[in-house]
Design a protein around this nucleic acid. Sequence first.
RNA 1: GGGCGCGUAGCUCAGCUGGUUAGAGCGCUGCCUUCACACGGCAGAGGCCAGGGGUUCGAGUCCCUUCGCGCCCACCA
Length: 851
Amino acid sequence: MTTLPDKPTIDGLEAKWRARWEADGTYRFDRTKRRDEVFSIDTPPPTVSGNLHPGHVFSYTHTDLVARYQRMRGKEVFYPMGWDDNGLNVERRVQLLTGTIVDPTLPYDPDFTRPEKVDKKARPVPISRPNFIELCEEVVPEFEAAYHDLWATLGLSVDWEHTYTTIGPKATRTSQRAFLRLVRDGLAFRAESPTLWDVDMRTAVAQAELTDKELPGAYHKLRFTGPGGEALLIDTTRPELLPACVAVVAHPDDERYQPLFGKTATTPLFKVEVPIVAHELADPEKGTGIAMICTFGDTTDVTWWRELSLPVRAIVQRDGRLRPVTWGDEGWESTDPAAAQAAYDELAGKTVKQAQARIVELLAEAGAMEGEPRPITHAVKFWENGTRPLEIVTSQQWFIKYPPKDVLLARGKELQWWPDFMRVRYENWVNGLMGDWNITRQRFFGVPFPVWYPIDEDGVVDHLSPILADEASLPVDPTTDVPPGYDESQRNQPGGFAADPDVMDTWATSSLTPQIVCGWEDDPDLFECTFPMDMRPQAHEIIRTWLFSTVVRSHYLHDTLPWRNAAISGFIVDPDRKKLSKSAGNMPDDPVTLIARHGADAVRYWSANGRPGMDMTFDEGQMKIGRRLAIKLLNASKFALGLGEPAAGAGISVPIDRSMLVRLADLVDEATRAFDGFDYARALERTEAHFWSFCDDYLELVKNRAYSEGPGAESAKAALRLALETLLKLFAPFLPYVTEEVWSWWQEGSIHRSSWPEAAPLRDAAGAGDPEVLNVAAEVLGEIRRAKSEAKRSMRTPVATVVVRDAAARLAALEQALDDVRSAGVVDELTVAEADGFAVEVTLGDEPPKG
RNA sequence: GGGCGCGUAGCUCAGCUGGUUAGAGCGCUGCCUUCACACGGCAGAGGCCAGGGGUUCGAGUCCCUUCGCGCCCACCA
C-alpha cells in the first residue's frame, strides 16, 4: 500500500523517527548472535566536561555511517555509547561550575548542598572529598544529557541500552580488576621516581599528556671552579637549580673536556664538589659544551641521573617552591656550608621563577656569572591543560611497565589503519617512549587504587608493601572500605593500615573501554560475541594516548589486539586551516543549532564528505547542499511512486530502462567496495552523482512514457521502483531520516534493517542492457536543452527537427531510445546520420500558444 | 632535527593501479513560474592541476627538488 504526502517535507523528521526507532528498538543489539555475525564498535566516549562542538558531529557521524552500512550488510551491530566523565577536566569543570574546591582534610558534611548560584569572582567554597564526588555525580548527568540529545537527534544508530561511563561502578570495577592483574603479574608496580609534575594542579602528569610551548628564557653563563682552580664556564637556562646540581657533563669525544673526566668541579655560591662526567647526550655545540646535571631540570637530567647513577639533591617541592635545606647534612655536603646556607636561605620558599631572579643577583654579586643573561626562546614542557611549566619532583607512584618496543610495533602492523599512514604516528610514539607509564594522579575525582598500606608499630607507613583488595570486593574505595583482615578502627593507626590517597590516570581506565563495554568477566556471553572488537573510531590526536594504551592493556590481558580496524578521523578547521576554537574566535554555531537550521541529514551529509583521516573545512554551504539532496529525494520518490504500482508480472523490457539498471548495478558495486574500505565519502559521492543524473536525465526521458499506458509504461514503473529502492538503500547510511520517511510510504519495516543492495539482481532485471543507450540519449537531450537555452526559450518549446551525427555504434544505441528522447525534447522529427564526431543540429519550432 | 599529510576553477572538494579536449557542487551570469520538486529546473562563463627538473609514446597522476600550509614525534642544558 503506497501512501504519498501531498507536499513532502523534511521538517520534523528527526523527532518523528527518533521516537519511532527508540520505540521499535531498531538499533538494539541482539546478543544471541555469534561472534562472526557481529560487528562491534569501540565508541569513543566524549568528554562530557567539554562543550558541544561541530567536530563531534563530524567524527561521530563517520562511525555511524559504518555502523549503518554493516547493519544493512547483515551484521548485528554492537554500537554502545560511553561518557567520559573521569579525570582532571571534569574535576575542574565541576569545581568551576559549583564554585567549590576540595580540601581533603575536611570531614564529610552530610548537609552540604550545591550552591544555587555561583559567583565566579568569589572564593571557592572548600568541601570534603566525598562531598565533591557527590557533587560530580550530581552534575555530570546534566552534561551527559546534552550529548545524548545531540547524538539521538543526529541519528546515531547507537543502542542506548548499552551505555557506560568511565567512572561509574562498572568501569571502576573493570579498571581495578585489570590493575590488580597487572600487579599480580609484576607489570604494575610502585616506585619512587622522578615524575613530571604540574605545580598548579599538584599532580603527576604522564608523558602522553605533555605538550611543548615556546617560552622566552635566557642562557646564564655560570663560573664553576675546575679541578685545578681554573674557571669552568657552564651555560644554563635554569640557574635556580644550581643548588640541585649533582654533576657536570660533556660529550665523551669532546677534547676540551676529556682531561677533566673523573675529576671534580666546584659549584659557585654553594661550593659543592660535583663529578665531571661524560655522556653522549651532551651536545658539544650547545652553550659551552659542558652542562650541569640537576635533580631535576628536565627529562635529560633524569636520563643522565639514571644512567650515570648520580645522587638526588632535590629542591623543588610539589607546590613549585624551593624547599628548606640544611647545608652540611648528609647529601648536602659543601666545602663552605655556612656560605651555602646563607645563599640558599635567600631562595628557600620562593617559587622557581622568584628564585631564579634572586640567584642571578647573588651570582652577579659573587662575580660568578659571565656577562649578562642572553635571551632565547626555547620549548618548555607543559601539561597539555597547564599554565606553568612542568617541574620534575621525586615521589611514590604506580607505574605500568610497557611491553618491549618490537612487540608494540608488531601490534601496530597487525592493526588495519584507515587511512593506513596513521600507523606512522603510532610508530613514532612507540619509538619515542621513555620509562614506564605513570598512572598515578594526586587528585580526588577518579578511579581509586584498590590498595592500602600497612602501618608498623612505630606509625610508619610502608608504601612499598601494598595490601591489595580482593577481586570479588571490587569496586572499592580504600578511603572508606577496609582491607582484608583489618577493621575500620585500625585506619591510620600504628599496626593498622592507610588508604592509597591517589586516583588513576584517566587513560588507565579509558584504555579498557573494550573490556568495559564488552563485559569482560562480568558478562562472559556478551564478551564472547563482541571481543576482540571490529572497529575503533577515534581522532588522530589521541593515537598516542587512547589508541596506544588500549593496545597495551589488551596485549597484557588477552594477548590480542583489542580491535581489527582503527578508523581515524580528522578534525574541523576553518577556511584558513586553523583549528576551530573559542579562543581563536572562529567557532561556528553549536551542533544543535546547526541541526535545527539545516536538518540532521544535511549535517550528516556535510560530515560524510570528510574522508577518513582528513581534516575538513567547516562549511555550512555543504549542509545546504545536503538539505537540497534530501528534499530532492522526497520529491523524486513522490514522482516515481506516484505513477502507481506496475501491473503484476510487468517486465522491464525497454532498452533505456535496462540501460539505467546496468549503470545502477555498477554503482552498487562501487559503493560497496568503497564502504568496505571505510571510504564512505566516495560511496556518497558516487551515489549522489548517479542520483542527480538519474533525476535530470532518466526521469525526464521516461516521464511521458511512464504516464502513458501499455508495456512501455509498465516497464518504466517497474524500473523506477527498483531503482528507487536501490538508491534509497545506498543513501540510507548517510540520510537516515529522509530515506526512512520515503521507505515508510511504500515498504514495511525500517530501511535501516533492510538489506544492502546487491548488483546481481539488478543485472538480472537488466538482462542484456547496454549502458550506452542512456548515455547517448542523455547527451542528445542535453544538446536539445542547450539549443533551447541559448535561444532563451522555454524547455517546453517544440523542436521541428533534430539531426544527430555520431558513430554507428552510438547511433544504434540511440535508436533504442528514440521515442523517449523525442518525447522529452518535444521533438517533431529526429533523424540520424553516421559521422566521425558527435554533433547535434536542432531547429526549434514555433512558440507554444500562451495560456 | 626526524616524520606524516596537504597544495587541482573565486570557494569546498573528486580525479583509485599514468591514457583521448581536467570533473562535481557552491558562488557568479543568463534563461525557464514544464502536470515530482521555486527549499525548484535548464544552460553558460571560469583552471600553464604550487614552482623547477626528470622518467615515458604519453604525467594532475611516478621519481628528484624547491616553496607554502597543517599536524605528529624528538634527549632543545
